[in-house]
Amino acid sequence: MSAKPDAIQNCLWPACLVGLLFPSVLSLECGLLNVHLNRVTWQNLRILNKMSDSFPVECLTENKDFELPQKILSYTQPMNRDIMEAFYEMFSQVFNIFSRHAFKSAWEEKHLKQIQIGLDQQIEYLERCLEEEEKENEDTKQMEEISYSGAREPLLSNLELRRYFNRIGNFLKDKKYSHCAWEIVRLEIRKCFYYLQTFTMLLRRK
């Protein structure tokens, strides 16, 4: 009576385990990246909100549309190199804004530090995953370099991002890093993060 179930247990379980485990484990390289990003972006959003109580009304007249290039993340694939690079570029540029000029802002040192820590963490994770990918692709890359005889061009979207952050940087410079200018930039970066947040949420659902 028990011979049959026993046979199933003995033969099927290992087979099931092999079948179930390996595909999932092998595809987990940096698989949690969007989970990390989602989490830290959320944290950063909260800090950005905490930095100021509300947007000062007197700054409304100075408001400017920086034209966030929303198309760059309208990809439907999961986290791939291009998206990672775009994220990396974004966080790097925001970090740049908050570390190069922010001492001229009226924000609390504590909040500024928190956001720098958060951004640094995100950049670090992205860097690690990009590096990992680079190592994996080392051989194929070498072959590519031989056949195309030159460095691969980055995506055009990266350039669009640069233009966007350049507009933000120039705006701050033109307004002489005034309080209003910083408030406007804070709102803009919040918008940008919010956009990333929804994007990573969508990626997670896939």
Binding site: F95, N96, S99, R100, F165, N166, G169
Partner: peptide, 9 residues
């Protein structure tokens, strides 16, 4: 490279 001073590796 003004935008990259903290992002060179």
């Amino acid at each position: 490279w003004a935008m990259d001073s903290s992002r060179f590796t």
